[in-house]
Each structure stands twice: as structure tokens, then as C-alpha cells.
Simulated assay, not measured.
Amino acid sequence: MHRRTVLKSAAAASVALAAQSLPNKAAAGQFTGKIKKAIKLHMATGNESVLEKFRMIRDIGFDGVEPRVKLGKENEALVRSYAEASEATGLPIHGVVHSSNPDLVGAIDQAKMLGANSVLHVVRYDRKISYLQNYEETKQIIRQAIGHAEKQGVMILCENVWASYLIEPMGMARFIDSFDSPMVGIYFDVGNVVRWGWPEHWLEVIGRRAKKLDIKEYDLTVAMNEGMREGFRKPLGEGSIEWDKVRAELAKIDYHGWATAEVKGGDRDRLVDIADQMDRVLDLV
């Protein structure tokens, strides 16, 4: 009996020692499994093929990608290569970027073909016409496409940009609510608002109207001394944005969805760095 007891104790000690030698499993972050990180496709620079870029983006650890809309017969082969690369690599195309092009129906169809569920739309600001006329005309562009968006299951998401239009959260919320449609929401750009306000204040107001996030940094000190656009130069987490407050507001609305980096791209090493920065500021690991 004594011999069996000694052997059992020795075995238990060996198991404990082996467990101590294993690397510690990384603890999950606050938004692990809730936020999926992506990049804009054009951020992957270089001469690699579309397929090679999709494969690289996937292998780095991004969950998806977002290309720009390319309409017209001359772009059919390129758009088809996006779809083929996504299928071959398993890297989803979660949305498409359409800027302020009024052809939302064409963008919605392209998004659907690529397996995406959103079109990023920039509400234009035409200074040659009155503010109220611009307001109604831009609403009409979106309103005319809502039925098609519902049919295709593709959201129209309006981004807050530097067009000096819809630059505060109450106005943006009212604009979105005027459509009374679940297919129209906000593509919230965290960095773009710092010129006029703070992202956590925007999130407090727009709440669950924020369907997707663009991720970039902004530094007010740099902007004030070197030029407004230079404020975007700082790496994520090293500027004026208080990311802990952003995360707190995202938690309040129980945000689940995509966060896409929109910063200066580059080669594989640069994209790895961006992925690491996103992990830190969004608490993904």
C-alpha cells in the first residue's frame, strides 16, 4: 500500500510539473468574440495578386476585408477576383466602400455578389446648393435605394466624414431616424469625430445605430501644430482618443460586429503592426 501511494504521489507531481511548463493560454479580452477586425483592401500594398493579398490578410489574423466598389464592365474581372479570392481563402468580404456615388443600387448589388452585408455611403455636401436642398436630396438618394437594400439584405451605412456636414451626433441620429428603416444605419468612424468632439460622446448618442466601426487614431496636438490631416499620423493608442472610454460605450450598447482599420497601409510587417494595435485599443486579446 505504501508503494502504491508513493507512485500515485509521484505521478501527480509529474502532471503538475508538466502543466507548469506549458505556456499560459492568452486571456480573452473584453471584446474577444464580439468584435471582428478587418482592413480596407487597398491598405495591402505591393504587387501581389488579389488572391495573395487575401491570403496574407487572413494569415496575419484579420477576420475580414472591405474593398472599394468598382462599377462598370471594365471592372467586372477585378470584382470577380475579389469573390474568387474570398471563396478560396475563406476570408469574408464584410462590406464595400462606395463613398458618395449616388448609384447605391449598383453598390448594393455588388455587395450582395461579394457576400457583403453593407455599403459604406458618404452623405455628400454640395456647397453650390442650399443646405436644406442638399439635406433633402441626399435623403432622397438613400430613400430610393432602401427597398432594394431590403430585398438584397444589404445595409446602407452612412459614415461621419470631414465634409462639414452631419458632424455632430444629434444631427446624424436624426438623419438616420428619418428613414425609419433597419437597413439604414451609421458606419461610425472613431477618429473622424475628434476634430469636433469625442467618440465616446458620439456613441452615447447614436447608440445601436452604429452598425460598423472604422478604426483610426487622431492627435489634436499634432493637428494644431502641423496641420489638421497630420493628426491621423499617430499609431492607434498613441493619440488623443481615450480608447477605454470608447470601449465602455461600446459595452453599454453591447456592440457585436465589424471594426475595420482605415489607416496608412503597407507590406506584411505594417499590417501585422496594425493588427496588434487594433488588438490593444479594442481589447481583443
Score class of each variant (00 low, 15 high):
W202Q: 01
A107K: 03
G115K: 09
R229S: 14
M278F: 05
V97I: 15
D177M: 09
S21G: 08
L51P: 02
I186H: 11
A88K: 11
K25Y: 07
R195P: 06
V285S: 15
A19I: 14
A13D: 10
N117G: 13
F31N: 02
V272W: 06
P92Q: 06
K112R: 15
E230P: 00
E84F: 02
K8W: 08
S99H: 12
A107R: 03
G171Y: 04
Q144R: 15
S178Y: 12
I156Q: 01
H98M: 05
V50D: 09
L91S: 07
Y165K: 01
H148L: 01
V79N: 00
G227S: 06
C158T: 13
I142R: 00
E230Y: 05
E76P: 03
A38N: 06
F188H: 15
E87H: 09
A18D: 08
D244P: 00
L7Y: 06
L22I: 12
E168P: 01
M172V: 12
G72C: 00
E159V: 05
V190R: 07
K212C: 10
K34A: 10
L271N: 07
G191C: 08
D219V: 00
L78E: 12
Q144I: 04
L22N: 07
R68Q: 12
Q152A: 15
D279H: 13
A251L: 08
R80K: 12
K112H: 15
R143Q: 08
H201L: 14
G61L: 00
L120N: 13
H98Q: 06
T260H: 02
G171L: 07
E150L: 01
E76K: 14
V184D: 08
R280H: 13
K216A: 02
R55M: 07
D279V: 08
Q20E: 15
E230V: 12
G231N: 04
S118L: 08
P102W: 03
H94D: 11
R233L: 02
G72L: 02
T32D: 12
S49I: 03
D63F: 05
V154Q: 04
H148W: 05
Q152I: 00
Q30K: 14
M278S: 04
E52N: 11
Y165D: 01
I35W: 04
R124E: 11
Q20L: 15
